[in-house]
Simulated assay, not measured.
Amino acid sequence: MQWFRVGRIVNTHGIKGEMRIQVTTDFPEERFASGEQVYAFVGNEEHRPLTVHSCRPYKKGYLLVVEEVKNLTEAESLKNLELWVPESHLHELEDGEYYQHEIRDCQVYTASGDEIGRITDILQTGANDVWIIRPSSGGKDVLIPYIDDVVRHVDVEQKKVVIDLIEGLIDE
């Protein structure tokens, strides 16, 4: 079974078992909605199912309450654990939307067919995502904004992305 990271418990909050989480999903309101299930990984294989009671924005993260945690001591035992969901829990996306795991490792080409490199990571900047591309020819990574003026075509099945190379995007 394939698992996908959706967050990390970074601290506790208060004495009733609330936990501060750093979210790594594009859909926190859906992923951490009441009744949803996430899994805290304790080791490489052992995981603990957690049922969301409530979740709300707090500063730069969220405050999470799960039904299985009743107090501060129980919440502290989960501190620094990552939260994951199995592939079967992924939500359907609209056309033109992609999960980050689908974009990573895609080969990037210009509209004229020149190979740029491979997407190795994605930065979430707030305004738009920025794809980090490891050039096929070596050298330093290239940053490509995920905006309509640049990204022309994404084929996650073929792991191929076509971009318009606008002036100044890549140092020559």
Rank of each mutant, 00 (worst) to 15 (best):
E36P: 06
E68V: 05
W84C: 07
S88A: 11
E102M: 10
I132W: 02
R31K: 07
K79W: 00
L123R: 06
G168Y: 07
D155T: 00
P28V: 04
G168R: 05
H53K: 15
A40C: 11
Q100V: 15
E30R: 03
F27K: 14
T110I: 09
Q100T: 09
V154T: 06
Q107D: 14
M1W: 05
K70D: 02
L72K: 15
V6I: 11
Y109V: 04
V38N: 08
K16Q: 12
Y98D: 05
T120K: 04
V52L: 05
V38Y: 00
K140T: 14
N44V: 03
T24E: 10
N44R: 11
T12F: 00
E102V: 00
F4C: 06
E94K: 14
L72T: 03
C106H: 00
Q2R: 15
D129G: 12
R118A: 03
L81S: 10
N80V: 02
D141L: 10
T125V: 05
S137R: 15
E94F: 04
T120N: 03
V162P: 00
E102Y: 04
C106M: 01
D148W: 02
V23R: 06
T73H: 08
P135K: 02
H89G: 02
Y62C: 05
V52D: 08
F27D: 12
D148Q: 12
P145R: 00
G61T: 04
E102L: 01
L93N: 07
R5P: 07
F41C: 11
P145C: 03
G14R: 10
M1T: 12
R104P: 12
H13R: 11
Y98G: 08
E30A: 01
G61F: 01
S137L: 08
E67W: 03
D149K: 14
R5K: 14
I144C: 15
V150L: 06
N71T: 05
V154G: 06
L93E: 02
L143I: 05
V52M: 03
V156K: 03
D164R: 13
E167P: 04
R152T: 12
V10I: 15
P28H: 04
D148A: 09
P57H: 02
L64M: 08
P57Q: 02
E115A: 15
K70P: 00
F4H: 15
E92N: 12
Y62N: 08
E167T: 15
N44L: 09
D141Q: 14
S137H: 10
E76W: 01
D114A: 11
V10W: 01
Y62G: 06
G126N: 03
H53V: 15
Y99H: 14
V66S: 11
I166D: 09
E46I: 15
Y99P: 13
K70H: 03
R31M: 13
I119S: 04
V108F: 02
W84P: 06
G61A: 02
D155F: 02
R48W: 01
E102N: 11
H91M: 14
P145A: 03
E45Q: 14
E92L: 13
G126P: 08
T24A: 10
S137A: 12
F4I: 07
V6H: 05
S136W: 01
H91L: 13
V142Y: 07
T24W: 02
I9V: 14
D26T: 14
I21V: 14
C106W: 00
V66Y: 08
Q107W: 07
G126W: 02
P145N: 05
Y99I: 10
I21A: 08
E67R: 12
E36G: 09
